[in-house]
């Protein structure tokens, strides 16, 4: 049996992801996490000296704290199995990637294990975030300098 034929057969037999169901679940779970975040933001705006703009920083930190609890007690991966990208895309998913790696690698010690592996999943997000921000900001700064666009 040659490769092409087998891969066709494999495609036939392997069930396809249920696109619509997955998308709806991602929408609901992801939307719900943002919805909760809005409550947290409201809390910071109402009870502390934050504006709608500045409230996003403590909100993000609080969401990651919640993510830590859910990850540690083993609920986050259950949510993820249902929600897919709905739980991976929000900042809680970023927190989960770092926190789960930190918990997992404690057995190798706090320096080489926790420290060395904490960023192994989330590190690429930081890398590409920083590098793309650098490129975008650099281009824009140059364009402003040339008088093509304004701030």
């Amino acid at each position: 049996m040659d490769e092409k034929k087998y891969q066709q057969l494999e495609q036939q037999i392997t069930p396809k992801p249920r696109y619509l169901k997955n998308c709806i679940l991602a929408f609901v779970v992801g939307g719900f996490i943002c919805f909760i975040g809005q409550f947290v933001a409201l809390f910071y705006i109402s009870f502390f000296d934050f504006t709608e703009r500045t409230a996003s920083n403590p909100t993000v930190a609080t969401m990651i704290f919640i993510s830590m609890l859910l990850t540690g007690f083993g609920y986050y991966k259950k949510i993820a199995q249902v929600g897919g990208a709905g739980s991976a895309v929000p900042i809680t998913g970023f927190g989960n990637a770092m926190i789960s790696a930190a918990i997992e690698h404690r057995s190798e010690g706090y320096v080489l294990g926790v420290g060395g592996n904490m960023f192994k999943l989330a590190g690429s997000v930081i890398l590409y975030g920083v590098f793309s921000a650098f490129v975008v900001a650099l281009i824009k700064t140059i364009l402003v300098g040339l008088g093509v666009v304004s701030w």
Binding site: N22, A26, G31, F32, I33, C34, F35, G83, A85, G86
Partner: peptide
Amino acid sequence: FIVGGLICVIGQ
């Protein structure tokens, strides 16, 4: 809810 959900749908 809607915008957050839609961004997640793109990810999905």
